[in-house]
């Protein structure tokens, strides 16, 4: 197991550098003259040379690359054109904003969806199972932004229980992220997008668990477990649910990897200042350092989450070996 983790970590480092290099090449070779983007008005050749020197662009490519890697590793990602400030703190902040919304929603959806799905499989053919399954399919097919709009209409505009958008009531003061989210005002803003997201994410784990569970319940080792004289609860949880969980974990990994992308619609509708919304703005203003920073950050996050899931998976399913 230890060997596997070490091996997997080494893989991760290799992947990280590959992505880093690709990003470098994309931005250096894909855009012949970075200056054109930095300052749009015409520049004299002398000023240009000064600027080039200042940014280290007069150095040979491999030195530039080395500098770029060192900077990246120390958290130096350049200066945003739009915000006119360092990219790294911006990305971190927006990312945490996204995470604080998405992760609780996902975790809630999967921790509720799994057991409900298992229960549905167990009660197969009963009225409760049929109705719930249909509701889940409807929920799954409805577009997220549409549900969000309806929810805002009902709870924010009509009932006026919660604010219609944002993370906090403006203006506010917070020394750090922790302070920002640890208060009632935040919860007030948080509760509606969180509920909409969890509900909308609930369908996938629920239906998935129900289906795999049905498959597992029909397999030979469940029949043997019955013949062994184990009681129904032990069969259901120790044997059936344990096996049915595996695809659920995979699905969870895929979903977490797509957190940022998936959040764009919700973040826009709820004016949530997250990373997804930030990417769309950065693209609009051609804010290359910011785009580069967010890309790298997303890649890193997906890698870390995949690593965690891989380790979890190899623990849960002995058939997986990464030799």
């Amino acid at each position: 197991m230890k060997k596997f983790i070490v091996r997997r970590l080494i893989h991760m480092i290799i992947t990280f550098f590959t992505i880093l290099t690709m990003l470098f090449l994309l931005f250096r070779l894909g855009l012949p003259d970075p200056m054109i983007i930095y300052i749009r008005e015409g520049l004299g050749p002398e000023e240009r040379a000064i600027l080039m020197r200042r940014f280290g662009l007069d150095k040979p490519l491999h030195e530039q690359y080395f500098l770029y890697v060192v900077n990246f590793l120390t958290g130096e990602m350049g200066i945003s054109f739009y915000y006119k400030s360092s990219v790294f703190p911006i990305v971190i902040e927006k990312f945490l904003n996204t995470l604080i919304l998405m992760l609780p929603a996902l975790v809630t959806a999967y921790t509720l969806g799994g057991p409900i799905g298992a229960f549905l499989a167990w009660r197969r053919g009963r009225k409760f199972e049929k109705v719930t399954t249909i509701l889940a399919v409807i929920n799954y097919s409805a577009p997220l932004f549409w549900i969000s709009l309806i929810a805002i209409f009902i709870f924010a505009i009509w009932l006026r229980w919660v604010p219609a958008g944002g993370m906090r009531t403006m203006p506010y003061e917070a020394a750090n992220f922790f302070e920002k989210v640890m208060n009632l005002d935040f919860v007030h803003h948080f509760i509606l997008p969180f509920s909409v997201l969890s509900l909308s994410y609930l369908a996938i784990p629920m239906l998935l668990m129900r289906n795999t569970m049905l498959e597992v319940l029909g397999s030979d080792f469940i029949e043997l477990a019955r013949a062994k004289g184990l009681n129904e609860r032990v069969i259901l949880y120790r044997h059936a649910a344990r096996n049915a969980m595996l695809p659920l974990i995979t699905q969870f990994a895929i979903s977490t990897g797509l957190i940022v992308g998936g959040a764009v619609a919700v973040e826009v509708v709820f004016s949530w200042p997250g990373l997804g919304r930030e990417i769309s703005t950065a693209l609009k203003y051609l804010d290359y350092p910011l785009i580069q920073g967010t890309f790298m950050f997303m890649a890193l996050m997906i890698m870390i989450l995949n690593f965690i899931v891989d380790v979890l998976y190899s623990y849960l399913d002995p058939r997986i070996s990464y030799e």
Partner: peptide, 23 residues
């Protein structure tokens, strides 16, 4: 019945290849 199953009557099922829980 669970008291009789396996203690008194056990079974080697058809397709014993798949009769073991893989995890």
């Amino acid at each position: 019945l669970n008291k009789i199953r396996w203690r008194k009557i056990s079974m080697i099922p058809q397709n014993a290849m798949n009769a073991l829980d893989p995890v």
